[in-house]
Write a protein that binds this DNA or RNA. Sequence first.
DNA 1: TATTGTTATACTCTATAACTATA
DNA 2: TATAGTTATAGAGTATAACAATA
Lengths: 163, 163
Amino acid sequence: MSNTKLASIAPSRINDDTLRKFLGYHLKRSFNVIQADLSETLKPFDLRMLTFTALVFIVDNPGLSQSQLADAMDIERPNLVIIIDELEQRELIVRDRVQTDRRMYALRATLAGKRLCKKAVAADKAHELRLLAGLDNETKANLMSALEALSHHLQNRTESHNS
Amino acid sequence: MSNTKLASIAPSRINDDTLRKFLGYHLKRSFNVIQADLSETLKPFDLRMLTFTALVFIVDNPGLSQSQLADAMDIERPNLVIIIDELEQRELIVRDRVQTDRRMYALRATLAGKRLCKKAVAADKAHELRLLAGLDNETKANLMSALEALSHHLQNRTESHNS
DNA sequence: TATTGTTATACTCTATAACTATA
DNA sequence: TATAGTTATAGAGTATAACAATA
Protein backbone atom coordinates (compact mmCIF):
# COMPACT_ATOMS: atom_id res chain seq x y z
CA MET A 1 0.00 0.00 0.00
CA SER A 2 3.01 2.35 -0.46
CA ASN A 3 1.46 4.80 -2.88
CA THR A 4 3.31 7.79 -1.48
CA LYS A 5 4.37 8.90 -4.97
CA LEU A 6 0.85 8.43 -6.24
CA ALA A 7 -0.57 10.77 -3.63
CA SER A 8 1.01 13.78 -5.28
CA ILE A 9 -0.81 13.09 -8.54
CA ALA A 10 -4.01 11.23 -7.79
CA PRO A 11 -6.34 11.45 -4.82
CA SER A 12 -5.19 9.04 -2.11
CA ARG A 13 -8.72 8.53 -0.87
CA ILE A 14 -11.48 8.29 -3.44
CA ASN A 15 -14.29 10.79 -3.11
CA ASP A 16 -17.76 9.38 -3.68
CA ASP A 17 -19.76 12.30 -2.28
CA THR A 18 -21.90 12.59 -5.40
CA LEU A 19 -22.66 8.91 -5.85
CA ARG A 20 -23.23 8.31 -2.17
CA LYS A 21 -26.51 10.17 -2.46
CA PHE A 22 -27.90 7.62 -4.91
CA LEU A 23 -29.92 4.64 -3.81
CA GLY A 24 -28.90 2.71 -6.91
CA TYR A 25 -25.22 3.09 -6.08
CA HIS A 26 -25.51 1.51 -2.63
CA LEU A 27 -27.98 -1.04 -3.94
CA LYS A 28 -25.62 -2.21 -6.64
CA ARG A 29 -22.57 -2.40 -4.40
CA SER A 30 -24.47 -4.27 -1.71
CA PHE A 31 -26.07 -6.64 -4.17
CA ASN A 32 -22.73 -7.45 -5.80
CA VAL A 33 -21.18 -8.48 -2.48
CA ILE A 34 -24.17 -10.51 -1.36
CA GLN A 35 -24.56 -12.14 -4.77
CA ALA A 36 -20.89 -13.15 -4.93
CA ASP A 37 -20.95 -14.54 -1.41
CA LEU A 38 -24.26 -16.31 -1.94
CA SER A 39 -22.89 -18.05 -5.02
CA GLU A 40 -20.18 -19.58 -2.84
CA THR A 41 -22.74 -20.58 -0.21
CA LEU A 42 -24.96 -22.30 -2.77
CA LYS A 43 -22.10 -24.03 -4.61
CA PRO A 44 -22.14 -27.13 -2.36
CA PHE A 45 -25.78 -27.61 -3.37
CA ASP A 46 -25.05 -27.02 -7.06
CA LEU A 47 -27.46 -24.10 -7.03
CA ARG A 48 -27.22 -20.52 -8.25
CA MET A 49 -29.31 -17.63 -6.98
CA LEU A 50 -31.81 -18.16 -9.82
CA THR A 51 -32.14 -21.93 -9.46
CA PHE A 52 -32.36 -21.51 -5.68
CA THR A 53 -35.10 -18.90 -5.93
CA ALA A 54 -37.05 -20.98 -8.44
CA LEU A 55 -36.79 -24.08 -6.26
CA VAL A 56 -38.02 -22.25 -3.14
CA PHE A 57 -40.96 -20.78 -5.06
CA ILE A 58 -41.94 -24.21 -6.38
CA VAL A 59 -41.66 -25.84 -2.95
CA ASP A 60 -43.80 -23.10 -1.42
CA ASN A 61 -46.29 -22.98 -4.30
CA PRO A 62 -46.90 -26.51 -5.58
CA GLY A 63 -48.58 -26.59 -8.96
CA LEU A 64 -47.69 -23.13 -10.16
CA SER A 65 -47.02 -22.60 -13.86
CA GLN A 66 -43.85 -21.36 -15.54
CA SER A 67 -45.58 -18.11 -16.44
CA GLN A 68 -46.57 -17.53 -12.84
CA LEU A 69 -43.07 -18.37 -11.66
CA ALA A 70 -41.38 -16.11 -14.19
CA ASP A 71 -43.70 -13.34 -13.09
CA ALA A 72 -42.94 -13.94 -9.41
CA MET A 73 -39.20 -14.02 -10.11
CA ASP A 74 -39.34 -10.91 -12.25
CA ILE A 75 -37.66 -12.55 -15.21
CA GLU A 76 -38.81 -13.20 -18.76
CA ARG A 77 -40.42 -16.55 -19.62
CA PRO A 78 -37.70 -17.60 -22.07
CA ASN A 79 -35.03 -17.20 -19.39
CA LEU A 80 -36.89 -19.45 -16.99
CA VAL A 81 -36.94 -22.43 -19.35
CA ILE A 82 -33.30 -23.46 -18.84
CA ILE A 83 -33.63 -22.95 -15.10
CA ILE A 84 -36.59 -25.34 -14.97
CA ASP A 85 -34.78 -27.70 -17.36
CA GLU A 86 -31.85 -27.86 -14.95
CA LEU A 87 -34.00 -28.46 -11.87
CA GLU A 88 -36.00 -31.12 -13.73
CA GLN A 89 -32.91 -32.93 -15.03
CA ARG A 90 -31.58 -33.10 -11.48
CA GLU A 91 -34.97 -34.55 -10.45
CA LEU A 92 -35.56 -31.81 -7.91
CA ILE A 93 -38.85 -30.87 -9.57
CA VAL A 94 -41.28 -32.32 -12.10
CA ARG A 95 -43.28 -30.77 -14.91
CA ASP A 96 -46.82 -32.17 -14.61
CA ARG A 97 -49.18 -31.64 -17.53
CA VAL A 98 -52.34 -29.80 -16.49
CA GLN A 99 -55.35 -31.78 -17.78
CA THR A 100 -57.74 -28.83 -17.84
CA ASP A 101 -55.31 -26.65 -19.80
CA ARG A 102 -52.77 -28.68 -21.71
CA ARG A 103 -50.73 -25.62 -22.66
CA MET A 104 -49.11 -25.35 -19.28
CA TYR A 105 -47.19 -27.35 -16.73
CA ALA A 106 -47.86 -27.60 -13.01
CA LEU A 107 -44.48 -27.44 -11.32
CA ARG A 108 -43.94 -29.55 -8.23
CA ALA A 109 -40.92 -30.31 -6.10
CA THR A 110 -39.86 -33.93 -5.59
CA LEU A 111 -38.91 -35.24 -2.17
CA ALA A 112 -35.25 -34.71 -3.07
CA GLY A 113 -36.09 -31.18 -4.16
CA LYS A 114 -37.81 -30.40 -0.89
CA ARG A 115 -34.90 -31.78 1.10
CA LEU A 116 -32.30 -29.84 -0.86
CA CYS A 117 -34.43 -26.72 -0.59
CA LYS A 118 -34.59 -26.99 3.19
CA LYS A 119 -30.82 -27.38 3.50
CA ALA A 120 -30.11 -24.54 1.06
CA VAL A 121 -32.52 -22.19 2.85
CA ALA A 122 -30.79 -22.92 6.17
CA ALA A 123 -27.36 -22.36 4.65
CA ASP A 124 -28.53 -19.14 3.01
CA LYS A 125 -29.95 -17.86 6.29
CA ALA A 126 -26.69 -18.66 8.11
CA HIS A 127 -24.77 -16.98 5.31
CA GLU A 128 -26.73 -13.74 5.63
CA LEU A 129 -26.36 -13.69 9.41
CA ARG A 130 -22.61 -14.17 9.00
CA LEU A 131 -22.48 -11.39 6.42
CA LEU A 132 -24.33 -8.98 8.71
CA ALA A 133 -22.38 -9.93 11.82
CA GLY A 134 -21.09 -6.77 13.46
CA LEU A 135 -24.17 -4.69 12.78
CA ASP A 136 -26.30 -4.07 15.84
CA ASN A 137 -29.77 -5.57 15.96
CA GLU A 138 -31.55 -2.27 15.49
CA THR A 139 -29.63 -1.55 12.28
CA LYS A 140 -30.36 -5.05 11.02
CA ALA A 141 -34.09 -4.68 11.75
CA ASN A 142 -34.19 -1.26 10.09
CA LEU A 143 -32.39 -2.65 7.08
CA MET A 144 -34.79 -5.52 6.62
CA SER A 145 -37.95 -3.45 6.99
CA ALA A 146 -36.61 -0.67 4.77
CA LEU A 147 -35.61 -3.10 2.03
CA GLU A 148 -38.90 -4.94 2.24
CA ALA A 149 -40.77 -1.64 1.96
CA LEU A 150 -38.67 -0.61 -1.03
CA SER A 151 -39.07 -3.94 -2.77
CA HIS A 152 -42.85 -3.88 -2.32
CA HIS A 153 -43.13 -0.25 -3.35
CA LEU A 154 -41.17 -0.80 -6.56
CA GLN A 155 -43.03 -4.01 -7.31
CA ASN A 156 -46.45 -2.38 -7.05
CA ARG A 157 -45.19 0.50 -9.14
CA THR A 158 -44.18 -1.73 -12.06
CA GLU A 159 -47.41 -3.72 -11.78
CA SER A 160 -49.53 -0.61 -12.19
CA HIS A 161 -47.29 0.44 -15.09
CA ASN A 162 -47.85 -2.81 -16.94
CA SER A 163 -51.63 -2.71 -16.63
CA MET B 1 -56.58 -11.57 -14.96
CA SER B 2 -59.33 -14.20 -15.43
CA ASN B 3 -57.49 -17.23 -14.08
CA THR B 4 -60.52 -18.72 -12.37
CA LYS B 5 -59.80 -22.18 -13.78
CA LEU B 6 -56.18 -21.85 -12.78
CA ALA B 7 -57.11 -21.23 -9.17
CA SER B 8 -58.23 -24.81 -8.69
CA ILE B 9 -54.81 -26.13 -9.73
CA ALA B 10 -52.21 -23.49 -8.98
CA PRO B 11 -52.06 -20.89 -6.22
CA SER B 12 -53.79 -17.71 -7.33
CA ARG B 13 -51.53 -15.59 -5.18
CA ILE B 14 -47.87 -16.52 -5.03
CA ASN B 15 -46.48 -17.23 -1.59
CA ASP B 16 -43.02 -15.81 -0.93
CA ASP B 17 -42.99 -16.26 2.85
CA THR B 18 -39.66 -18.10 2.80
CA LEU B 19 -37.83 -15.78 0.42
CA ARG B 20 -39.22 -12.64 2.00
CA LYS B 21 -36.93 -13.23 4.97
CA PHE B 22 -33.82 -12.91 2.82
CA LEU B 23 -32.02 -9.64 2.34
CA GLY B 24 -30.63 -10.81 -1.01
CA TYR B 25 -34.12 -11.44 -2.34
CA HIS B 26 -35.32 -7.89 -1.72
CA LEU B 27 -31.98 -6.48 -2.78
CA LYS B 28 -32.10 -8.22 -6.13
CA ARG B 29 -35.70 -7.32 -6.89
CA SER B 30 -35.15 -3.69 -5.94
CA PHE B 31 -31.91 -3.45 -7.88
CA ASN B 32 -33.49 -4.95 -10.99
CA VAL B 33 -36.26 -2.34 -11.04
CA ILE B 34 -33.95 0.58 -10.34
CA GLN B 35 -31.36 -0.65 -12.83
CA ALA B 36 -33.93 -1.09 -15.61
CA ASP B 37 -35.46 2.33 -14.95
CA LEU B 38 -32.06 3.99 -14.65
CA SER B 39 -31.02 2.62 -18.02
CA GLU B 40 -33.97 4.42 -19.58
CA THR B 41 -33.12 7.61 -17.72
CA LEU B 42 -29.50 7.54 -18.90
CA LYS B 43 -30.35 6.63 -22.50
CA PRO B 44 -30.75 10.26 -23.65
CA PHE B 45 -27.16 10.85 -22.47
CA ASP B 46 -25.88 7.67 -24.13
CA LEU B 47 -24.74 6.42 -20.76
CA ARG B 48 -25.17 3.11 -18.93
CA MET B 49 -24.94 2.67 -15.18
CA LEU B 50 -21.25 1.71 -15.50
CA THR B 51 -20.22 4.55 -17.80
CA PHE B 52 -22.23 6.96 -15.66
CA THR B 53 -20.58 5.80 -12.44
CA ALA B 54 -17.11 5.95 -13.99
CA LEU B 55 -17.73 9.46 -15.31
CA VAL B 56 -18.90 10.75 -11.94
CA PHE B 57 -15.89 9.24 -10.19
CA ILE B 58 -13.51 10.85 -12.69
CA VAL B 59 -15.19 14.24 -12.40
CA ASP B 60 -15.02 14.07 -8.60
CA ASN B 61 -11.48 12.64 -8.50
CA PRO B 62 -9.42 14.27 -11.23
CA GLY B 63 -6.19 12.42 -11.93
CA LEU B 64 -7.13 9.03 -10.53
CA SER B 65 -5.78 5.92 -12.22
CA GLN B 66 -7.71 3.09 -13.85
CA SER B 67 -6.68 0.75 -11.04
CA GLN B 68 -8.00 3.13 -8.43
CA LEU B 69 -11.21 3.58 -10.38
CA ALA B 70 -11.75 -0.14 -10.87
CA ASP B 71 -11.20 -0.59 -7.15
CA ALA B 72 -13.68 2.17 -6.30
CA MET B 73 -16.26 0.75 -8.71
CA ASP B 74 -15.76 -2.78 -7.43
CA ILE B 75 -15.08 -4.21 -10.86
CA GLU B 76 -12.05 -5.95 -12.36
CA ARG B 77 -9.46 -3.90 -14.22
CA PRO B 78 -10.03 -5.62 -17.57
CA ASN B 79 -13.71 -4.73 -17.48
CA LEU B 80 -12.96 -1.08 -16.95
CA VAL B 81 -10.88 -0.73 -20.11
CA ILE B 82 -13.77 -0.66 -22.58
CA ILE B 83 -15.69 1.70 -20.31
CA ILE B 84 -12.79 4.16 -20.33
CA ASP B 85 -12.32 3.59 -24.07
CA GLU B 86 -15.92 4.58 -24.66
CA LEU B 87 -15.76 7.72 -22.51
CA GLU B 88 -12.46 8.71 -24.15
CA GLN B 89 -13.74 8.18 -27.70
CA ARG B 90 -16.70 10.40 -26.91
CA GLU B 91 -14.20 12.99 -25.62
CA LEU B 92 -15.83 13.10 -22.19
CA ILE B 93 -12.53 12.22 -20.50
CA VAL B 94 -8.83 12.08 -21.38
CA ARG B 95 -6.07 9.62 -20.50
CA ASP B 96 -3.07 11.69 -19.42
CA ARG B 97 0.27 9.93 -19.14
CA VAL B 98 1.76 10.30 -15.66
CA GLN B 99 5.36 11.53 -16.06
CA THR B 100 6.60 10.16 -12.73
CA ASP B 101 5.18 6.68 -13.45
CA ARG B 102 4.67 6.03 -17.14
CA ARG B 103 2.78 2.79 -16.52
CA MET B 104 -0.40 4.55 -15.57
CA TYR B 105 -2.85 7.12 -16.80
CA ALA B 106 -4.29 10.06 -14.90
CA LEU B 107 -7.95 10.21 -15.84
CA ARG B 108 -9.54 13.63 -16.20
CA ALA B 109 -12.93 14.82 -17.40
CA THR B 110 -13.13 17.27 -20.28
CA LEU B 111 -15.43 20.28 -20.15
CA ALA B 112 -17.97 18.32 -22.18
CA GLY B 113 -17.61 15.45 -19.74
CA LYS B 114 -18.23 17.68 -16.76
CA ARG B 115 -21.28 19.20 -18.41
CA LEU B 116 -22.78 15.84 -19.35
CA CYS B 117 -22.03 14.54 -15.86
CA LYS B 118 -23.89 17.40 -14.24
CA LYS B 119 -26.96 16.86 -16.42
CA ALA B 120 -26.92 13.08 -15.92
CA VAL B 121 -26.57 13.44 -12.15
CA ALA B 122 -29.57 15.76 -12.07
CA ALA B 123 -31.62 13.41 -14.24
CA ASP B 124 -30.63 10.46 -12.08
CA LYS B 125 -31.61 12.30 -8.92
CA ALA B 126 -34.98 13.23 -10.40
CA HIS B 127 -35.43 9.65 -11.54
CA GLU B 128 -34.87 8.27 -8.04
CA LEU B 129 -37.23 10.79 -6.49
CA ARG B 130 -39.88 9.83 -9.03
CA LEU B 131 -39.31 6.16 -8.30
CA LEU B 132 -39.68 6.68 -4.57
CA ALA B 133 -42.70 8.97 -4.86
CA GLY B 134 -45.43 7.68 -2.59
CA LEU B 135 -43.13 6.63 0.23
CA ASP B 136 -43.28 8.95 3.23
CA ASN B 137 -40.17 10.94 4.09
CA GLU B 138 -39.34 8.90 7.17
CA THR B 139 -39.32 5.66 5.18
CA LYS B 140 -37.13 7.28 2.53
CA ALA B 141 -34.65 8.54 5.12
CA ASN B 142 -34.55 5.14 6.83
CA LEU B 143 -34.00 3.47 3.51
CA MET B 144 -31.08 5.68 2.58
CA SER B 145 -29.30 5.40 5.92
CA ALA B 146 -29.90 1.65 6.13
CA LEU B 147 -28.58 1.06 2.64
CA GLU B 148 -25.57 3.27 3.20
CA ALA B 149 -24.80 1.40 6.42
CA LEU B 150 -25.13 -1.94 4.64
CA SER B 151 -23.00 -0.85 1.71
CA HIS B 152 -20.25 0.40 4.02
CA HIS B 153 -20.40 -2.65 6.25
CA LEU B 154 -20.09 -5.05 3.32
CA GLN B 155 -17.37 -2.96 1.72
CA ASN B 156 -15.19 -2.96 4.83
CA ARG B 157 -15.81 -6.66 5.23
CA THR B 158 -14.44 -7.49 1.78
CA GLU B 159 -11.50 -5.12 2.25
CA SER B 160 -10.40 -6.89 5.41
CA HIS B 161 -10.87 -10.21 3.59
CA ASN B 162 -8.58 -9.19 0.72
CA SER B 163 -5.77 -7.99 2.97
C1' DT C 1 -57.06 -14.18 -31.41
C1' DA C 2 -54.59 -14.94 -27.07
C1' DT C 3 -51.64 -17.66 -24.06
C1' DT C 4 -47.97 -21.30 -22.58
C1' DG C 5 -43.86 -22.92 -23.29
C1' DT C 6 -40.00 -22.94 -26.41
C1' DT C 7 -35.98 -21.72 -29.58
C1' DA C 8 -32.74 -18.59 -31.23
C1' DT C 9 -30.25 -14.67 -30.52
C1' DA C 10 -27.95 -10.57 -28.85
C1' DC C 11 -26.37 -7.49 -25.41
C1' DT C 12 -24.48 -6.40 -20.93
C1' DC C 13 -21.94 -7.47 -16.83
C1' DT C 14 -18.60 -10.23 -14.64
C1' DA C 15 -14.29 -13.07 -13.90
C1' DT C 16 -9.72 -15.15 -15.13
C1' DA C 17 -5.39 -15.94 -17.50
C1' DA C 18 -1.81 -14.15 -20.03
C1' DC C 19 0.50 -10.54 -22.37
C1' DT C 20 3.29 -5.54 -22.74
C1' DA C 21 5.56 -1.88 -20.87
C1' DT C 22 7.18 0.15 -17.28
C1' DA C 23 9.03 0.32 -12.46
C1' DT D 1 9.97 -9.25 -9.15
C1' DA D 2 5.84 -6.40 -9.08
C1' DT D 3 2.35 -3.19 -11.00
C1' DA D 4 -0.72 -0.65 -14.71
C1' DG D 5 -3.06 -1.29 -18.49
C1' DT D 6 -4.48 -4.45 -22.08
C1' DT D 7 -6.31 -8.50 -24.85
C1' DA D 8 -8.87 -12.50 -25.30
C1' DT D 9 -12.27 -15.28 -23.66
C1' DA D 10 -15.84 -17.57 -21.10
C1' DG D 11 -19.77 -17.56 -18.17
C1' DA D 12 -23.86 -15.62 -16.26
C1' DG D 13 -28.10 -12.70 -16.46
C1' DT D 14 -31.32 -10.27 -19.21
C1' DA D 15 -34.36 -8.90 -23.19
C1' DT D 16 -36.87 -9.44 -27.67
C1' DA D 17 -38.84 -11.74 -31.74
C1' DA D 18 -40.85 -15.65 -33.62
C1' DC D 19 -42.62 -20.28 -33.48
C1' DA D 20 -45.77 -24.66 -32.20
C1' DA D 21 -49.37 -26.37 -29.45
C1' DT D 22 -53.41 -25.34 -27.21
C1' DA D 23 -57.27 -22.52 -25.65
